[in-house]
Amino acid sequence: MGQFKLLLFAWCHNSRNYLGIVVDCPSTHSSHILHHVVQLQPQSYRFVDKGLFGDFFTTYVEDLVSGRYDVHNDIISMLPNSGPHTGTSISRGIRTTVSVMFCPDETPAYRVYRYQISFEVLDFAALGFASAQLKSRHWLIHYQDQQQTQSSGHGVVGEFPILSEESPYYRYCSRMTDDELEGLMLVALEGYFTMVPGTLEEPAGPDFTLAVPYTEVPIPMEIL
Rank of each mutant, 00 (worst) to 15 (best):
Phe4Cys: 00
Lys5Ile: 00
Lys5Trp: 00
Arg16Trp: 14
Val22Trp: 01
Val22Pro: 01
Cys25Ile: 06
His29Arg: 01
His36Trp: 01
Gln39Leu: 09
Gly54Leu: 12
Phe56Thr: 04
Thr59Lys: 13
Tyr60Leu: 10
Ser66Ala: 15
Gly67His: 02
Tyr69Thr: 05
Ile76Gly: 04
Pro80His: 14
Asn81Leu: 14
Ser82Lys: 15
Pro84Glu: 14
His85Phe: 15
Ser91Cys: 04
Val100Gly: 12
Met101Asp: 09
Phe102Gly: 03
Cys103Asn: 12
Pro108Arg: 13
Arg111Gln: 15
Tyr115Ile: 02
Ile117Thr: 07
Ser118Asp: 10
Glu120Lys: 13
Leu122Val: 09
Asp123Met: 12
Phe124Tyr: 15
Ala126Lys: 15
Leu127Gly: 07
Ala132Tyr: 03
Lys135Phe: 05
Ser136Cys: 14
Trp139Met: 08
His142Asn: 11
Tyr143Arg: 02
Tyr143Lys: 02
Gln148Cys: 06
Gln150Cys: 01
Ser151Asn: 14
Gly153Gln: 07
Gly155Ser: 04
Gly158Asp: 03
Pro168Glu: 08
Met176Gly: 00
Leu181Gly: 00
Met185Asp: 11
Leu186Thr: 09
Glu190Asn: 06
Glu190Lys: 13
Gly191Phe: 07
Met195Tyr: 04
Gly198Arg: 09
Pro203Arg: 05
Ala204Pro: 01
Thr209Tyr: 11
Val212Lys: 03
Pro220Gly: 10
